[in-house]
């Protein structure tokens, strides 16, 4: 995984999304989820292209059930965009890069 993507845990989640100066897109994923693997390279690309405007982070749901439950994640991949520490948008299911950027564009300036 590229260094542009932060690996979050139940312990580090709150501080990371609250202290970020830019919106953070958190990818709720797991090793056994095929569609999660498909979008991993897409998120890497977005992380490089949007560096400084958008932070990208991943949360492994197997290891971090507290945060997964707090946001009622019931399907993966789920992507939640956090602005000032609060969820601002949610994308459920794997999508191509074009569609992801389109759904995020309204929330990014």
């Amino acid at each position: 995984m590229s260094e542009k993507i932060t690996n979050l845990s139940d312990a580090s989640f709150d501080e990371h999304v609250k202290s970020s100066d830019v919106p953070v897109l958190v990818d709720f994923w797991a090793e056994w989820c095929g569609p999660c693997k498909m979008i991993a390279p897409v998120l890497e690309e977005i992380a490089s292209e949007q560096a400084g405007k958008l932070g990208i982070a991943k949360l492994n749901i197997d290891d971090n059930l507290d945060i997964t439950r707090r946001f009622d994640v019931m399907s993966i991949p789920t992507l939640i965009l956090f602005k000032d520490g609060e969820p601002a948008a949610r994308i459920v299911g794997a999508k191509g890069k074009g569609q992801l950027l389109q759904e995020l564009s309204a929330h990014l300036s």
Binding site: A30, W32, C33, G34, P35, C36, I61, D62, D72, V73, M74, S75, I76, P77, T78, V92, G93
Partner: peptide, 16 residues
């Protein structure tokens, strides 16, 4: 309710 109990991918969502 897709993603909120309705699933298109059992292998992705069974866990929940």
């Amino acid at each position: 309710l897709v993603g909120y109990g309705v699933s298109t991918c059992a292998t992705c969502d069974g866990f929940f």
